[in-house]
Simulated scan of single mutants.
Amino acid sequence: STSKVLQSYMTREVTTETEIGQSRFTKLVPDLQGIDPDDAFSSVPYEKGFNLLYSVQQKVGDEEFEKFVKDYINTWKSKLITSLQFKDFVMNYSAHFKKKLQDFDWDRWFYAEGMPADKPKFDTTLSKLANDFAHRWTTAGAGEIKPTSEVGKEMRAAWNSWTSQQRQYMLDQILENSEKQKMPIAVLQDMDAVYEISITNNAEVRFRWCTLCLRSGADFIVQNAVSMVTSQGRMKFTRPLYRELQRSEARGARDAAVRTFLKNVNFYHPICRKMVAQDLKVKQNNKQGWSWLGVSAVTISAYLVWAVWRIRSRKCPIPFVH
């Protein structure tokens, strides 16, 4: 189930990079000649890299792969390694590896855009029910599934028993469907009544829920999304949510995106700040950004000079203390 969640997340991330004209950054080894590496930052290398490793594991077998991982860590700890060095290490690890991976298409994994050509197969046992419920939600009409109905109770009981990954997976399937057809706002309200998702503190679930509702233009989710982008600064959540706010048809969402970002601009890591500003087409005012630091430096310098004078005059350097 965890693997299915990761693959779903990767699919969405690759789609997002393509939508904003950055499909070249969906390669595992992108060409960064003349490009600021910060501009290429995304979750693609993490999730696509995971799929590559899992493909290798499936081909060589779990036991052999576990031995390899231990030797890899012992060999390369405290060192840097390039993609080509990693490939050579894998292919030359043992005769078994070389035989099982002789047809492994490293070039397509490394240099092709988008999803990998040979997706690894995952065990879908734990994701089946989540997938079934996702389908029921995407085909339901307003008022069909209520918290007090038998199906509503069944869905809530399953939700309560699921891991976070299973919940994420169900929402991922609904999100995938929403790219073709928006979820009716009334059905989203039914979902919220059954699961009470709007009050969750799970960042992964909350992020997906906010994204899903913003895509449908649900007014009720705007404040929740704003709260999320201002209560944490992880770029995997913050950047996509700002994009969703900006293009959402929910009332006040577009204005809230720019207004919220400008108000909280110094809250974010410089890379995150730069990327969100780029997405929202907001220019950073460097003069204003440096003005406070300049005033602070002058103030501190003046205080130090004054404190030295007080010490030389045998007075306490802290004002109003005698």
Rank of each mutant, 00 (worst) to 15 (best):
T2N: 13
V5Y: 08
Y9C: 01
E13Q: 15
V14H: 07
T15V: 12
S23C: 11
S23Q: 15
P30H: 06
L32M: 09
D39A: 13
F41Q: 13
F41S: 13
S42E: 11
F50C: 07
Y54S: 14
Q57M: 07
V60F: 11
F65A: 14
V69F: 15
I73Q: 04
T75G: 12
T75D: 04
F86H: 06
D103G: 15
W106R: 05
F122L: 12
T125P: 00
D132K: 14
T139N: 14
S149Y: 05
S149P: 07
S149C: 02
V151P: 00
W162Y: 11
M170C: 09
Q173G: 11
P184M: 02
I197T: 03
T200W: 00
R206Y: 03
R208Y: 08
C210A: 12
T211N: 02
D219I: 07
D219G: 03
F220L: 00
V226K: 02
R234P: 00
R234A: 12
R239T: 09
R239E: 15
L241Y: 03
E244Q: 09
R247C: 01
S248G: 06
E249N: 08
E249M: 04
A250W: 02
R251E: 02
D255N: 15
A256L: 01
V265K: 10
R273M: 14
K274W: 04
K274N: 10
M275S: 14
K281T: 00
N285G: 11
W290C: 05
L293E: 13
S296A: 13
V305H: 08
W306R: 10
A307W: 08
F320D: 11
